[in-house]
């Protein structure tokens, strides 16, 4: 550790100033617009925003989908990560590569595929009708289900990767030891795996939750105007109505939610 503080500050300052001036400052002004009505400081914008049923519906839908996507990713993520960690090293590398592969692909492309897959004549519906699960094709597109599926595919790799690195740190003999001592698999999970991988779960959960909240492409393409989320609502308010008060409010809500998730989950991880 070097003690020369001025030298250290001089090195870190360009980055900090760059972000503060060119990034945080404009964002700050945008957020402040939500607290202004007709140039005067006021909370009337917020009151008005909350009074509209559409805004409330969109807020709760965004929250719900964020939680749901994080929760389901965690369940599938644990199962998958557990299986991957137990593979032989060579295979493990290959599977790991395939898991992170979607992260390298443009979200436009990833979402676009679901239009074809989930459509009336898409393969999912062909399979459902073919297997006799339903007489007629099921409507997926422009439903919350479609947005959920799209978001899950988009963000689950982040959860799996976080869980894999957490599980790699599990003591090799912890699970066999618990089994020998008579623990059921459920007990192994709740008493051994869960406590020891909590930090990975929290990190993955934060990434998935904030990712789902702030995704734009997926709700725009798979949800459309019937299944608005906060991001698509913000886009619409600005682009159709030049409504910067609503934009400032939605932006504040999103940042508070993301930041809140970060802080709260970090506390949970340390507790």
């Amino acid at each position: 550790m070097f003690q020369n503080r001025t030298e250290g500050l001089a090195l870190v300052l360009p980055a900090a100033v760059f972000i503060a001036v060119l990034f945080l400052f404009p964002v700050g002004i945008l957020l402040s617009e939500g607290f202004k009505v007709g140039g005067e400081w006021s909370l009337a914008g917020y009151a008005d925003f909350v009074s509209k049923p559409l805004n409330r519906t969109v807020f709760f839908r965004t929250l719900k989908l964020g939680f749901l996507v994080a929760f389901v990713s965690a369940i599938i993520g644990y199962a998958t990560a557990f299986c991957i960690v137990n593979l032989e090293p060579a295979q493990r590398g290959r599977v790991f590569g395939l898991i992170i592969l979607p992260l390298m692909i443009s979200p436009v492309a990833r979402t676009y595929a679901w239009i074809v897959i989930l459509g009336r004549t898409g393969i999912v519906n062909k399979a459902i009708v073919g297997m006799g699960l339903s007489d007629s094709p099921i409507r997926f597109l422009f439903t919350e289900t479609a947005v959920f599926i799209g978001l899950l595919q988009l963000f689950m790799p982040l959860m799996i990767v976080s869980l894999i690195s957490a599980m790699e740190n599990l003591p090799k003999d912890a699970i066999p030891a618990a089994r020998v001592l008579g623990a059921s698999w459920l007990q192994v999970f709740t008493k051994v795996i869960l406590p020891l991988t909590r930090e990975g779960l929290v990190l993955g959960g934060t990434l998935v939750f904030t990712g789902a909240l702030t995704a734009y492409i997926t709700p725009a393409i798979l949800g459309g105007s019937k299944v608005l989320m906060l991001e698509t609502l913000l886009y619409q308010r600005v682009n159709v109505s030049n409504d910067y008060v609503s934009a400032g409010i939605i932006a504040t809500i999103l940042i508070v939610m993301c930041f809140g998730a970060n802080v709260v989950l970090r506390r949970v991880a340390k507790a």
Binding site: V116, R120, T121, L141, F142, G224, S225
Partner: peptide, 16 residues
């Protein structure tokens, strides 16, 4: 099904 905002979007939906 949806409230469409672009005719291209509608064309794809009707085509599929």
């Amino acid at each position: 099904v949806t409230f469409y905002s672009r005719s291209s979007e509608l064309a794809q939906l009707m085509q599929q």
